[in-house]
Write a protein that binds this DNA or RNA. Structure first.
Lengths: 250, 250
DNA sequence: CGGGCTCTTGAATGGTTTCAATGGGAGTGG
DNA sequence: CCACTCCCATTGAAACCATTCAAGAGCCCG
C-alpha cells in the first residue's frame, strides 16, 4: 500500500486538477480504476471534461472523508486504498455498512446529505468532485446516469445480501462469507489470490459482521486450527475454499 | 384492505391495459399512488404512453410476484396492499429485506435477474411493466431515470439503516424502530395514525428484524404490559411515542 | 364443535457477549 | 540497543440475551 504524500493538503485545497504527484498522473485517461469504475461509461472527450472538475487527493489512514448527516459537498471515486463506511448509534455502537475498494464510488445516491461516515482504513487516493459540478456534469449525460444507476443497483443487491448475513447467519458463516467476498472483490480489481488482504482491524470486521471483536478473533483462530485458513500479517490465506463456501454460500 | 378480484387472472393475462375493474380505473392519470411514486416525474402525455405499456393487476395474498435469481421479466409499481421482499438460505432460513407499500417500485435496480423474492402479504394491486418495454420507455426520459435513481438512493439508505438495526440493535430496539418506521411510512402515503396496521405475520416481522417469532411475541407483549403499545387485531396502537423513540431512534 | 393455524407463554439451552487477563508487535525514548 | 509503553489481538471464564423446545391459548372457518 502506497504511503500518503505528505503534501496532500496542498493538493486538497487546489481548485483545479493540477495535482499530479503520487497516484494521479495524467488525469482520468490514465486512471488505474477507470475501466471498472463508473467512469468506464465515458468517452475520451468527456473524460477531459471530467478532468477539469476533478481533484486527485491522497489522504493518510484514519482520515475522515465525510460524516454521516452532514451536507454532501463532494462525491468521490476511490482510486487506491480501502475506505470504511459506517453508521453510528448515539451510545457508540457502530455498524460498518461497507468497505470501499479502488473503483468504488462514494456518494452514489447523489443525496444532499451523507447517509454514512467514510473513513480511510489505509492510506487512500480518491478522485474528488464538488457535488454541484458533478451533478451538472451528469445532467446532460444519460449514459453516465445509467451507469451510476447500475452501480447503485449493484450496491443495493450487496446491501440486501448483507442483511441476510446480519440477520440470519452464524458467526462462522459470517466470517466465511466475508473472506470469500473480499477475495472476489480483490479478484475483480486485478488481485487474484488465495491470500486475502485484510487491512482493516478486527474491530472493523466485527462491526461489519455484527459481531464482537472477540468472536471474530475466536472464529478466525478456530478456522486456522481446522486448517481452513492460514492467518498471515494483514490478511488471511484461504486453504480450504470448499469448506469456506459450505459455510459462506448464499 | 381491498379483497383481490377473483377475475384477476383474466386480467393478468391481458396484453393491453384494458383491465379496469378494481383499483385501476382510468389509467395512470387517476392512479392513487402516482404523486408519491416514481411516476410523479412524468407529464400527462408521458403518462398516456406509460398507460399503453402497463398492466394493472390484482393478486390475492400469498401470491408470488417474482422469485429470487430468476430472469427479471417485469418490473412493478405497487398500488395497493403490502408485499414482502426476501432472500432465503438453502436450509430455509429467511431474511425479509423489506416490505413494499403502495407507491413502492419493485425492480428498481433494473438488473436482469431478481435479487429477491416478492410475495403478496395481503391482497395486492400492482402496475406491471414488461422489462424490455419499460427499459425502452425509460431510455429517452432522463428525468425518469433520475427519479428511479433517487428512489434507488433512498432504498439504499433504508438498507443501510436496516443493517445498523440488524447488526447492532437489541430485540426491543428492533421492534420499536420497526413500529415507528411503519408508522412513518403509512403517514407518507396518507394514513396518519397512532394505530399502525401490521398485516404481516409475526414470523414475517421476525424474519425482517433478524429475530425469532417467540422473541417478537414476547417483546410486543412486554411493551404492551408496560403500556408503550396496545396490541389490536392486525396492528398495534402506539401509546408512548417518547418511550418508543428512546429505543428506536437512529 | 373440531381441526388447523397463528400467537403467546414457560423453561431450559446455548451461541455470543461481557468481563478480565495475557500475548505480541510497532513505535518511542533513554 | 534495549526497556517501556501503547495498542491491537488472543484467550479464558462467567454471564446473558435470544433461541430452542414444548405446551397451551385464541381464533377463524368449515
Amino acid at each position: 500500500m502506497r504511503i500518503a504524500d505528505p503534501l496532500q493538503d496542498s493538493c486538497a485545497g487546489a481548485a483545479t486538477r493540477d495535482c499530479r504527484h503520487g497516484l494521479a498522473t495524467n488525469g482520468c485517461e490514465d486512471c488505474k480504476v477507470r475501466l471498472f469504475s463508473v467512469c468506464a461509461a465515458l468517452e475520451v472527450p468527456e473524460l477531459e471534461e471530467l478532468d477539469r472538475i476533478s481533484q486527485a487527493r491522497e489522504v493518510p489512514a484514519r482520515t475522515t472523508l465525510f460524516e454521516q448527516s452532514t451536507l454532501a459537498g463532494s462525491v468521490f471515486n476511490v482510486t487506491d486504498g480501502v475506505v470504511r463506511l459506517y453508521k453510528s448509534l448515539p451510545d457508540g455502537r457502530r455498524q460498518i455498512v461497507g468497505f470501499a475498494l479502488p473503483g468504488d464510488f462514494l456518494g452514489l445516491a447523489l443525496q444532499d446529505r451523507y447517509g454514512v461516515t467514510a473513513e480511510a482504513v489505509t492510506a487512500v487516493a480518491v478522485c474528488r468532485f464538488a457535488r454541484p459540478a458533478f451533478l451538472a456534469y451528469v445532467d446532460d449525460k444519460p449514459h453516465l446516469l445509467r451507469r451510476l444507476h447500475e452501480f447503485a443497483g449493484h450496491e443495493l443487491s450487496l446491501a440486501q445480501e448483507q442483511m441476510l448475513l446480519l440477520g440470519r447467519r452464524t458467526a462462522e458463516e459470517k466470517i466465511a462469507a466475508f473472506l470469500l467476498n473480499m477475495q472476489a472483490r480483490y479478484a475483480r480489481i486485478g488481485t487474484v489470490s488465495v491470500t486475502v488482504p485484510l487491512p482493516m482491524s478486527r474491530q472493523d470486521i466485527a462491526d461489519y459482521l455484527g459481531l464482537t471483536i472477540e468472536t471474530v478473533s475466536r472464529t478466525l483462530t478456530r478456522l486456522a486450527r481446522e486448517k481452513v485458513v492460514l492467518i498471515v500479517p494483514d490478511g488471511v490465506r484461504l486453504l480450504d475454499l470448499e469448506r469456506l463456501k459450505l459455510a459462506g454460500a448464499s
